[in-house]
Design a protein around this nucleic acid. Structure first.
Lengths: 150, 150
DNA sequence: TGAATCTTGCTAATATATTAGTAATCGTTC
DNA sequence: GAACGATTACTAATATATTAGCAAGATTCA
C-alpha cells in the first residue's frame, strides 16, 4: 500500500520528438495523399532514387523499417507497380529491389512540390535554425548509437 | 519517356527525426517491455499521473494518439487493469479515464528506472545540448502550428 | 565432406496508425 | 419543443510496427 507516487522529473522526450515530427509531417501528408503514396512508400522511393537498387535489408536500415514491415510494404509496392523485386543469381537468399519507370515518373512529379514544402518550412523555422536542427538530430543519432557506449 | 529525374535537394527531415527518436526510444524499450507495458500505454499513464483523470479527446491531444487508436489502446488498458473508464453523468457522450491503484503502483516502480535512463542519455548528449534540444523541438512545434500561418 | 553456424527474407500474432464514416448526445435556433 | 448543427467516442478497413520465430541458402571449419 501507500507506495510513493511516481515522480518523473524529466519531460517525455520521445513524445516531444514525436510531436515535433508530427507537426512537420502534417505539411507533407496532403501531398503524399494526393499522389496516392504512403509515407513509408515515399521514404523507400526516395532512398532508391538516391542510392539506386538496394536489397530489403539495406532499405530497412536506411528507412528505419523493420523486416516484417518491409515484407508487407514492398509486396504492396510491387503490386501497384512502384518497385520490382528480383532474386540475385549468385545468392538465392537475397533480393534486389529497384524503382520502375512509373515510380520514377511519380517522383519527378512530386519532387518540386516536396521541395516547395521544405522551402516553406525553412521560411517558418529560419534557415539557420534548420541547419542547427539537422546537426542536432545527427548528433543525437551519433551519440546514442547503440554500438557505442551502452 | 524522358521525364526529368527527380531532384530532391533537401535531406528527408521527417526520416531524420524518426531515426533520432528511434535511437532514443531504444534506451527505454527494454524497460517498458520488462514491465509489460507498451510505449503508447506508458505515454497515457504519464499524462494521467501529471494531469489527473482526463477524457479521451484530451488524452489524444496530449499523447498524440488519434481517436481510433485510442479506442483500442484504452480498451486494452482497461482490460488489463491500467485504467478505468466512466461515463460523465451530466454529458452522456463523454468519458472519464483515470488511473487505477495498480497502474499507480506500476508507475511508482518504473519512475526511478525511467529517470535513470534520462540521466544516462543526458550524460551521453550533454546537459546543455539537451536543454537546447528540448527548446528546439518546442520551437518546431510552435512555429509549425497549423493554426498559425499556413 | 559435412555438421555447426550465420545470414537473409519471410510468416504469424498482436498492437497501433490512418482514413473514412457513424450513432448517440448536446446545445442552439426557430 | 422539434429541427439543425456540432461534438464525442466509437467502428470498419486497410497499412504499418513490434516481437518472436523459421526455412532456405551461404559460410566456416573440423
Amino acid at each position: 500500500m501507500g507506495s510513493k507516487p511516481a515522480s518523473l522529473k524529466h519531460r517525455n522526450l520521445p513524445l516531444l520528438m514525436l510531436r515535433a515530427r508530427e507537426h512537420l509531417i502534417r505539411r507533407f501528408r496532403p501531398l503524399l495523399n494526393a499522389h496516392g503514396i504512403t509515407e513509408q512508400q515515399w521514404r523507400i522511393v526516395r532512398v532508391l532514387l538516391e542510392a539506386g537498387a538496394l536489397e530489403p535489408r539495406e532499405i530497412g536500415e536506411l528507412c528505419r523499417l523493420s523486416s516484417p514491415s518491409l515484407a508487407g510494404v514492398l509486396a504492396r509496392m510491387e503490386e501497384i507497380g512502384l518497385v520490382s523485386r528480383k532474386r540475385l543469381a549468385h545468392d538465392q537468399r537475397r533480393v534486389r529491389v529497384s524503382l520502375t519507370p512509373g515510380s520514377r515518373a511519380l517522383a519527378a512529379r512530386m519532387a518540386p512540390q516536396i521541395e516547395a514544402v521544405y522551402a516553406r518550412v525553412e521560411q517558418l523555422l529560419g534557415r539557420e535554425f534548420c541547419k542547427r536542427l539537422y546537426a542536432a538530430l545527427d548528433s543525437v543519432i551519433d551519440k546514442l548509437e547503440p554500438t557505442a557506449s551502452r
